[in-house]
Design a protein around this nucleic acid. Sequence first.
DNA 1: TGAAATGTTGGGGCG
DNA 2: ACGCCCCAACATTTC
Length: 488
Amino acid sequence: MSTALVWFRRDLRLADNPALSAALERHEQVLPVYIDDADAESPWAPGGASRWWLHHSLASLEHHLRALGSRLILRRGGSLEQLSQLVTLTGAEAVYWNRLYEPAFVGRDKHVKEVLRESGLIAESFNGALLFEPWQLKTGTGDPYRVFSPFWRNAQPRLQERLANGQVPLPAPTALSSPGKLPDSASLESLHLLPRIAWDAGFHQTWQPGEAQAHERLQRFAGGPAARYREQRDLPAVDATSGLSPALHFGEVSPLQLVVRMQRLSASKPVAGIHANAEWFVRELGWREFAHHLLFHFPRTPEVPMYDKFGAFPWRARHEYAADLSAWQRGRTGVPIIDAGMRQLWRSGWMHNRVRMIVASFLTKNLLIPWLEGARWFWDTLVDANLANNTLGWQWSAGCGADAAPYFRIFNPVLQSAKFDADGDYIRRWVPELAKLSGDALHAPWQAKPAVLRAAGVALGQTYPQPIVDLAESRARALAAYERIKAT
DNA sequence: TGAAATGTTGGGGCG
DNA sequence: ACGCCCCAACATTTC
């Protein structure tokens, strides 16, 4: 009997899983494995929210595998060491996995592949996470892209062509036969993925990790919000986005599955503008592709600005900004849209993308706090924390990255709030102490008449903070700071 | 996937 | 009637 290991990492699904499909095609027995390899992940080991998701997603995968008559073997320790042990124990002759693109994993996986092959095994990796491998797309001069528009101009038609040629996701296996004698598995609890203090209470109300739940969410999205995606995706009070970012991060769904679902939707639904809406959603997947493309080709960007001149940017010093950073993290800045976003993040492990841009602009420009502080906080608190997307997002917001917002593009959080949360429903939901305010007073309570505040039971400095910065002053300060590095 | 300052235009009030 | 001015509305430029 020929046996293969399938090394699951961030492809926690059975359907459209190229490594799993290859193993099933070529071998009689397949052993699914997950390894908790903490050492390999530094300095971007998954944060608390991400680990919470991982715990439940692994439990879900194990459940699905058992339904097929299989198991998920959990191991702790070095990846190569654990794989080698499992190969010996099972007599496996092959190891398959789907690729990761973070700098910490690219090198490790290459080494694992080499060593396994040297010992006479089949070791093969697949693309299960991206529509395009980062090395597949190149500019006319053969360089990696640094600007999204030309990147997508190249990628999008190629994607269309593949769909037109009938590419579809791989089916999920209906049965999975494992070796008779299974190696020992660590318990899920022994991986200590859940937080020690129960700050995850709000997560359960919002999220159900797992492949089946991801498809339910996709179904819900395709059945309604997708048709209004382009107009409503920027409104944080409306449930207009797919909410699939964590599922995509952990590979509970593949981008190809989403693209094909959107294609089916455009083709089937006689709703005006459905095509443009579906296309816009796919374009957002394009940003995800672009982020992975950049991370692969510029592996230092999680810590270092893409453009050197930003190395000299006059950020405030830690001792100057410590209190402001803490206020931002806790949602106590005194600017309602900022506080609503930061509290949504803390409570639910997620923040609407429009609000991510607003809070990022506020941190880096109004507060002049280094973008890496924001990136680290998001990393620890987002259930969808993803190094490629997080890095792109923060460098874009700070203005120091590829295809970044120009440095002078400073969001005015009050205007953004009035524009995208016009009725204030989002603020009221997450900042309940302001719930009785409305209109301009809700978006900028410090400008409201005292009587209005009193009537709403708001006492600035007591029930809700005074703003920690003056928006106009800090805008000018940021422009002056950027002016200093402009020429160099 | 900005905001604010500055410039331009044209309707209407008014002497 | 006419010119002047104000200013909203929109466009362009600048940060």
